Simulated assay, not measured.
Amino acid sequence: MNQGNEMTVIEQGRRRLSLLAGSAVAVTLAALAGCAKPPPPPPPPPPVVVIPPMPAPPMGAPLNMVTPPKAEDGTRQTVNRGISTSQTVWNFRSAYNVAALNCVEAEYTPILDGYKRFLTVYDQSLDRASNEIDASFRTQHTGRAAIVARETYQTQVYNFFSLPPVDSGFCKAAMEVSAELMTVDPTQFEAWSYTGLAKLEAPFKAFFDAYDQYRADLAAWQSRYGSNGLIIVRPTSGQASAGPVPTPVATQTLPQPQPLSQAQTVTQAPAQPQAVQPTITLPTVQ
């Protein structure tokens, strides 16, 4: 073998070694790549909380007010609870008077007409009830104090039936009462007055029940959503974000009834019919 052939053989060997080395490196890199772990997945997005609207008071009432409590038997302890027949007659008169003054829309015209008729047709029962109530307060107070006590109680009655959120339901009840009074004989009015007063009071009791339910719903909402500060919220109709729970406004307390004894039966001659009282604006009892 000459020198040229030897160089060719040597060069070919070098090339084979180079190819083998390259193949080995490629195999090693492939093996290492197969053993490497994949990168961790990205962290999940923050949880999205869909918050229902905060409960709102019924009938546009204030955000925070106190309703008359319930007794153990479930009845509301309103200004009309546990009163005598004479006071029932007079409280009905007071409630009907509020309706005649406040239900001024044209559709409620029969209320004012009915109230004027009511004062005339049942004047003897009204006079008798007023006299008995005066006598009852005089058994608990003397002189001017008896008059003040009665006026204070009557102001509470007027304020009770003047609660703005109940205006619509109250006026509708007064319409029904006005129609029903057309069929009540004067001799039966005192017995019927319990029914009439209950019908005029019913919208207020329904409102108090609705307000108590609102307070329960609000407490549940605040317990679940109100302590989280700013919360991410998926936009819905009319609600795109949520923040801290609004601070409630000052508490509004309805006037509570003062203790009133059961009516003492007083036999007196009927007084002269009373004139229709002028329209007055009653102050709110603090």
Results as ranks from 00 to 15, higher is better:
204 F>P: 01
204 F>V: 10
206 A>H: 10
206 A>D: 13
206 A>V: 10
207 F>E: 02
209 D>E: 11
209 D>H: 03
209 D>M: 04
210 A>F: 01
213 Q>F: 02
213 Q>S: 13
213 Q>N: 15
216 A>G: 02
217 D>E: 14
218 L>K: 07
219 A>Y: 00
220 A>D: 15
220 A>E: 15
221 W>A: 00
221 W>Y: 15
223 S>I: 01
225 Y>P: 04
227 S>Y: 12
227 S>L: 15
229 G>Y: 05
234 R>H: 09
235 P>C: 03
237 S>N: 12
237 S>I: 10
238 G>D: 14
242 A>E: 07
242 A>C: 08
242 A>G: 08
243 G>N: 04
248 P>Q: 05
249 V>S: 15
249 V>W: 06
250 A>K: 09
251 T>S: 12
251 T>L: 14
253 T>P: 02
253 T>C: 01
254 L>S: 03
255 P>L: 03
257 P>K: 08
257 P>A: 15
258 Q>K: 11
260 L>Q: 07
260 L>K: 07
261 S>R: 12
261 S>T: 07
263 A>K: 04
263 A>S: 15
264 Q>W: 03
265 T>F: 08
267 T>W: 08
269 A>F: 05
270 P>Q: 02
270 P>M: 02
271 A>Y: 04
272 Q>R: 08
273 P>K: 03
274 Q>Y: 05
279 T>L: 13
279 T>W: 09
279 T>I: 12
281 T>Q: 09
